[in-house]
Amino acid sequence: MKKIMLFSLLLLGIVLAGQAQDRIVTVSGDTIDCQVTKSSGRWIHFTLQQQGIETQGKLKQEQVSQLIRSEATGPIAFIQSDWKKWRLSVSGGIAYQLGTTDDSRKDMQEQGLTQAQIDDYHDQFMLGWQSSASIHRMVNPTVGVGLQYRLMYSDADLRITLDPQDGNHLYHGQMTERMYINYVGASVLSQQSLTINKKLQLSALISAGVAFYRDETEILEGNLLFTGEALALTTELGLEYFVTPKISIGLSANLFASKLNKVKMDNGYTSDTIKLDEDEQQSISALDLSTGLRFYF
């Protein structure tokens, strides 16, 4: 008798396990009882039984209104297709300038600065800080259009000795430089969930706009101000983790590309606009590494 009961319970468990199914509800209202096998970011893959024959299928995540996982196959999870219409992002981090320093190093060497001073100055100046903000209107769950703003700041401060090459004089003092680059542009955002529960998301952004350049330099007792503007392009690749359905923490890498073909120089007494030859154009490109928050509403 005990053997019969044990066999019956075992058989019942096998039958129930075989019947345990997930359920997909599409945005059009159709219901699919199936076994969800995996989510590859954009697609939900599943198998289902039709007249005793197992078939395989897949749906785009934006086609799914609700996904209910059976307790037998995994935790219950839901996917809602009514995506948030707005995305606000705020980030900050480091920025490393990508432009060449050959001409600057040569000028400093001609003024009598030591190699150690030249290296110290450029090590300070090439690594800066940046912050950015963007807002996008999502036209569907994966694509949005909007605006992006970026501010980069970099500086260097060094005690120097200048040699005017007259054989008689040496000048001692401070050399300080502060550079600001403001950028604003239109942007297109693409984002894609990497998991079924949409906790992890990959995003990519491309933006085109205008960069505004400002460089304040103090050498001994003299002041110089350089300003300019140029077209710029920025691309970004990021990874987000959702701590709530409306807030995520993001990490991103961003390439900012721009080059100045003319600058305005002002020494406090006179000003002049300098047009730069092609081989003299100043790169203000940089590689950004950022972390920040994303808000969906």
Rank of each mutant, 00 (worst) to 15 (best):
D288T: 07
L224Y: 15
A156C: 07
K2N: 10
N182P: 01
I219T: 02
D277C: 04
Q191A: 01
T291L: 13
N261S: 15
R105F: 07
Q201T: 07
P75F: 12
L276F: 03
V263I: 15
L289I: 14
T142W: 09
G57T: 04
Q21H: 10
L10A: 15
F7R: 10
L200T: 07
Q109R: 14
L59P: 02
Y180P: 01
E62I: 01
L205N: 13
Q35S: 08
E110A: 13
L147T: 11
L147N: 05
K199T: 06
Q148L: 11
R214E: 10
G128W: 02
A257W: 12
I79A: 08
S65G: 12
R137C: 01
E216F: 07
S91A: 11
Q115A: 13
E71C: 06
A116L: 11
L11Y: 01
A208W: 06
M175D: 12
G228E: 03
I4R: 10
Q201C: 08
E280V: 02
G146R: 05
A208K: 06
D82K: 11
L11W: 03
K275W: 05
L202S: 05
M175A: 14
T100V: 00
R105S: 11
G167C: 09
G228L: 06
V27Q: 06
A253S: 14
K2M: 09
T273W: 04
G13F: 13
L202E: 05
L12M: 15
Q282L: 13
G209W: 07
T227K: 10
P75C: 02
L67H: 00
T114C: 02
R178T: 08
L224T: 10
Q124F: 05
L88F: 14
Y171G: 03
Y213A: 03
Q111E: 14
E54T: 15
A116K: 12
W86A: 05
Y296R: 10
T161M: 10
Q165S: 12
G250V: 01
L225K: 13
V263L: 12
L289T: 09
T142D: 11
L251E: 03
V243T: 06
T73V: 10
V263H: 05
S285D: 04
L293A: 03
Q80E: 13
A95I: 00
K2G: 12
H45M: 07
L11E: 01
S40C: 06
S134D: 12
E216A: 08
Q61K: 15
Q49T: 10
Q148T: 14
V25D: 07
N223H: 15
V145G: 13
S104G: 14
I32S: 04
I4N: 07
L10M: 15
D266R: 00
K264V: 00
T100Y: 00
L220Q: 01
Q174K: 12
F7D: 12
I32V: 14
A232W: 00
T273Y: 02
K275E: 11
G222R: 13
Q61R: 11
L293F: 09
S252L: 02
I181N: 08
Q63E: 14
L202V: 07
L289C: 09
S271P: 01
F78V: 11
Q165N: 15
A77R: 06
I32M: 04
G128P: 02
V15Y: 11
